[in-house]
């Protein structure tokens, strides 16, 4: 099953590679991994999207907690949470296709950021499911380039992931 794990990580050199190294050394899947600073300059927040059986996910969480650089961790998939990812996608846009791509972008609440005679760059935000749906709707033939940020997530309600 797919899990979204949020980690508060000590903001120090090498912390990222400890997490990345753990996943490769123990053969765990990484679908995506994002990391950026938080409001607290001593902490980074990392979001990992992974998948595995319940036993594997349990081990992943335990092994992550064991890393000395990991200050706090939450398996967001265990709670009610919001997942977002941004995708920038460059598509061919010519003739009648220009209008169709524009319409699809509106349906998916995307924005067109760059326009040329033959192409658009579109920004779409959403969860993994929505982004894949948009890619499918555009059709592989029209897509010139895809850049996805990887997912980030946060729990609903007042309860927060804090040190």
């Amino acid at each position: 099953m797919r899990h979204v794990i949020s980690i508060l990580l000590e903001n120090e050199s090498g912390a990222l590679s400890r997490v990345a190294g753990l996943f490769s050394a123990r053969g765990y899947n990484i679908e995506s991994l994002t990391v950026a600073p938080t409001d607290d300059s001593t902490l980074s927040r990392m979001t990992i999207v992974t998948s595995g059986t319940d036993a594997v996910i349990e081990q992943i969480i335990k092994q992550l907690n064991k890393l000395v650089s990991v200050a706090k961790l939450s398996d967001l998939s265990e709670i009610d949470f919001i997942e977002r990812e941004i995708m920038l996608i460059k598509v061919r846009a010519v003739d009648q296709g220009r209008e169709e791509v524009k319409r699809l972008t509106d349906i998916f609440r995307g924005r067109i950021l760059d326009v040329t005679d033959s192409s658009y760059v579109i920004e779409v935000t959403g969860d993994d499911y929505k982004l894949r749906a948009f890619v499918d709707a555009l059709g592989a033939d029209n897509i010139l380039e895809v850049a996805r940020s990887g997912a980030t997530g946060i729990g609903r309600g007042e309860k927060s992931l804090k040190v």
Binding site: A55, E58, Q59, K62, Q63, N65, K66
Partner: peptide
């Protein structure tokens, strides 16, 4: 003492 040792190889 190590939570990660528990149910790693055998439940």
């Amino acid at each position: 003492i190590d939570p990660a040792s528990i149910s790693k190889n055998v439940a």
